[in-house]
Design a protein around this nucleic acid. Structure first.
Lengths: 335, 335
DNA sequence: CTGAAAGCGCTAACAC
DNA sequence: GTGTTAGCGCTTTCAG
């Protein structure tokens, strides 16, 4: 079904049907209603492709790129994004990169093909993706990064202040008297993980907290890595007094290891985590952590993009979100 | 940028550019390479709207509708869906309904406008949405339901065998000697919740397990409802010996209430849940439950849709997935 | 207020 | 192997 057939059926001209259905002036109320009712009856909805093609305007679609929707952090961010985008009447393609640069670039190309009005991405940080985003940005594509970004590119970005979060945690364990620290890291490719690890090491050193090399464990950002890494740390003869876990999924695995080995927290070992997800509050004892705000991040990213598309003036290119320290009962007081 | 401008630039005809870029025969290798390289250089990707419009073919896009991406069940299903869709080179619009029929229908209309090749939906079960899906299906739109479906409509569907899951749980607590049962329900609008509740009540009656009305609590499907409902049940003078919680988010809330009140599971009260998410294994004690398989559901739904689109013959319209009983340590042996 | 005509970017059929 | 032409479904002039 299309506008021409409807026009024939109703013995009017296609342009009249177009005007009637798109709410443009220049049609009598009577005729307009007749057309609208007919379209409704036969379940006709105008072809958005043809319409946007002809109007040379926006498609009303966006692309969102994330590494993993199974990750609670991104699921929460998407939920918030969707909410804002719906209220502004945007549809979006969801693209999952799996942190795979080829897949991400492939998806980006197809988003461009579909002529999305803009792209919101938690990019895979790699030279190939960097070059591709850089090219897109130079050719005037509207892009907003969230969670991660390329410091070398001058593209609008919203991320968590990771350094600040780590420092809050280290300060806390320092105050509680801890002098030895273990760390469960993320994937070696994760920039977020690198920043968190580097900050932790530097700041621990500054506060004279010892981090022995064998206390640093972790091979990627999964539950499994958290589980195995925590076991490795717990099995050592000389353990650190507290373990810092760098994100939520790895902490889930680490907590599973602790449950399984029936280790008493915080008596036998203290735990702090980056991220505050579901399970931190129902673990026994509740886990002390710093909380990121994926919801706020999603809302800001969506609004940021919409503002750019509406040519509102944008104050700054990089927004860093504060973290919140949640003191619960997983850190023992040692002094 | 478009095909005509490229043609002018390279002093060839637009149709030649089209052929070269779309891999169609009828262009010399030399010219083809020149065109491809030029397109690559200027970052040109053909307009998918115009292309699909002209070809009168498929758009290569799908629509996916879910009630809530923040729900681990749906996040996992989407992850699996995406995986299959990517391997078949589909892009998809993600639509969140919030269980709101108006929002869902609004989104469906816009999916139709964008001429998606098919729709995979966990629909909001309401008369309005039912009528709308029914109309879409009659007008030959390709639809696959997952997680929920309209029994009255003959649309392909994949769901969990909820009755079977509940019976497995009730059988288990019956074997363990329990004679009194509390239930934390879902939103009264949720068909899934209704089926689970009804099955539980019927089957408990059959096995002579008492369910007193004040032991049935819950006002919606959220964490908050689980939290408050569990508190209500625990506060009663005469408590049931075991509480059945009907999904994962409500169980998270219920477990939080138990942690907060420092109730000992299973000594003071036994717990079983429908759904096995993240936290069930790290709670102390680990929670006995039946596990749905959202991953399998997502994979099947995607393959089902793709088969229909490719006109493969489809064996049956309704697929019910088995649940798995996970016996852990949250149910006390009473006999 | 309604109709006619042109064209968005692309591709398929047909020419040469 | 390349060019020409027509038209996908829509909207936007411009005419009447």
């Amino acid at each position: 079904m299309n506008i021409t057939k409807i026009a024939k059926e109703l013995k009017v001209h296609p342009s009249t049907v177009s005007r009637a259905l798109s709410g443009k002036p220049g049609v009598s109320d009577e005729l307009r209603n007749k057309i609208i009712q007919y379209a409704e009856k036969i379940g006709y909805y105008p072809d958005a492709r043809a319409s946007s093609l002809r109007k040379k305007g926006k498609t009303g679609t966006l692309g969102i790129i994330i590494p993993d929707i199974g990750h609670p952090f991104f699921a929460t961010a998407i939920k918030a994004l969707e909410d804002v985008l719906y209220s502004h009447n945007y549809n979006f393609f969801l693209c999952v990169s799996d942190e795979n640069p080829e897949k991400e670039i492939f998806r980006l190309k197809s988003l461009i093909s579909h002529r999305v009005d803009g792209i919101i991405a938690a990019p895979t940080l790699d030279d190939k993706t960097k070059n591709f985003y850089s090219k897109l940005f130079s050719s005037k594509k509207t892009i907003v990064f969230f969670d991660r970004f390329f410091p070398a590119l001058d593209i609008p970005s919203i991320a968590t202040n990771n350094e600040q979060g780590i420092k809050k945690l280290i300060n806390h364990i320092h105050k509680m008297g801890h002098k030895t620290l273990g760390i469960i890291t993320l994937s070696p490719e994760s920039i977020t993980g690198k920043i968190r690890l580097k900050t932790a090491l530097d700041y621990a050193k500054k506060l004279k907290i010892t981090v022995q090399p064998e206390w640093i464990q972790g091979f990627d950002s999964t539950e499994e890595s958290g589980y195995l890494s925590m076991k490795k740390i717990l099995r050592q003869k000389k353990r650190p007094s507290v373990v810092l876990i760098l994100n939520d999924l790895t902490s889930l695995g680490a907590l599973r290891a602790i449950s399984e080995l029936k280790i008493n927290v915080p008596e036998e070992i203290s735990i702090v985590t980056f991220d505050d997800t579901y399970w931190n509050q129902i673990f026994n004892p509740p886990i002390t952590c710093v909380k990121q705000d994926p919801k706020e991040m999603g809302i800001l990213a969506a609004k940021y993009l919409i503002n750019i598309l509406n040519k509102k003036n944008i104050p700054k290119k990089l927004i860093l979100l504060d973290t919140k320290l949640k003191i619960r009962q997983s850190v023992k007081k040692l002094n």
